[in-house]
């Protein structure tokens, strides 16, 4: 059949086809090159001391333990708040809401939140939590800001998962005499656990990668905080990304910046893999 096609068409065809292959290849090469570059430049500077101490100008040593801890604190505080809110919101949308307009309004708001750039979150977080609620520049203020930011992710993944829970589960539960909230707690939510966990992992990914929203809310300090200090008013500190920005842009210490970038890259990779496998492992019916 191909012999019947004119030469011009054949050439055009192969040009377009090679363009498609070329663009896919260029994207992969770009990513592979970037990953190799960061790992080669960064891994050499990662040592146990680098991970387990804090930066000391006096001794001239560099360590990122405070930043690791701060990242962890912010993840925990944010998830503790955003999980009930997001899951509750998804449950409302899927199980309670009957008014179509209300659902549309909430979905519109969620989409809007998802589209707002992080620098605006940073600014608004500073206005609301740091100044208006007078929390000061602190991890808590940063975490509150991230709660607003990650809310759409949790709502969306939970809602999608809730939609796939078969109605027979609900009917069965209600038929056995369970109240609505009991049904949601024992029959609906456990079946939607895959979406909730995926949402959590995606949110952790966003929190780990976030910098602009934390710059003015969580501060730039590099001191080790214990958990009690972390949740107190003045407990300010920079996460990995913020500290990386500071090392690269303000201090010009690119070795440390690349080391942190390598750590961030590895974290991103791990989170990506775990999000995928969590969705697979926890999906209903796979363990039959």
């Amino acid at each position: 059949m191909n012999e019947n096609i004119s030469c011009a068409r054949k050439i055009k065809d192969s040009i377009l086809k090679s363009l498609v292959w070329f663009s896919a290849a260029i994207i992969c090469l770009l990513l592979a090159g970037m990953i190799c570059f960061i790992l080669v430049k960064g891994l050499g500077h990662i040592s146990w001391k680098f991970l387990s101490s804090k930066t000391s100008l006096l001794n001239g040593t560099v360590g990122i333990l405070p930043n690791l801890l701060n990242t962890l604190y912010i993840i925990i505080i944010t998830l503790l708040i955003v999980l009930p809110l997001g899951v509750g919101s998804a449950v409302y949308l899927n199980e309670y809401a009957k008014n179509k307009k209300a659902v549309r309004l909430i979905e519109l708001a969620t989409e809007t939140l998802a589209g707002i750039p992080s620098i605006i979150y940073g600014l608004v977080g500073m206005l609301i939590f740091v100044q208006f609620c007078s929390l000061g520049t602190s991890l808590v203020a940063g975490a509150f800001t991230l709660v607003i930011m990650t809310l759409p992710t949790i709502i969306r993944t939970t809602q999608e998962s809730l939609k796939t829970v078969p109605d027979s589960y609900r009917e069965g539960s209600l038929g056995l005499g369970a109240g609505k909230s009991y049904m949601i707690r024992t029959a609906v939510l456990p079946s939607a656990i895959d979406g909730i966990v995926t949402g959590c992992i995606l949110s952790v990914g966003r929190i780990v990668g976030e910098s602009a929203a934390l710059l003015f809310t969580a501060g730039m300090a590099n001191e080790i905080l214990n958990p009690a200090q972390a949740v107190s008013k003045g407990g300010a500190g920079s996460t990995l990304t913020v500290s990386m920005y500071m090392y690269a842009k303000e201090r010009g210490d690119f070795d440390t910046a690349f080391a942190i970038a390598a750590i961030l890259l590895i974290l991103t990779l791990l989170l990506n893999i775990s999000a995928k496998s969590a969705a697979k492992l926890l999906k209903r019916g796979d363990n039959k």
Binding site: S211, M244, L265
Partner: peptide, 16 residues
């Protein structure tokens, strides 16, 4: 690869 790209923090892109 595309998924991984979406997850890489913006400061890392900035650094590279």
């Amino acid at each position: 690869a595309v998924n991984l790209m979406a997850g890489i923090p913006s400061v890392v892109y900035g650094l590279v």
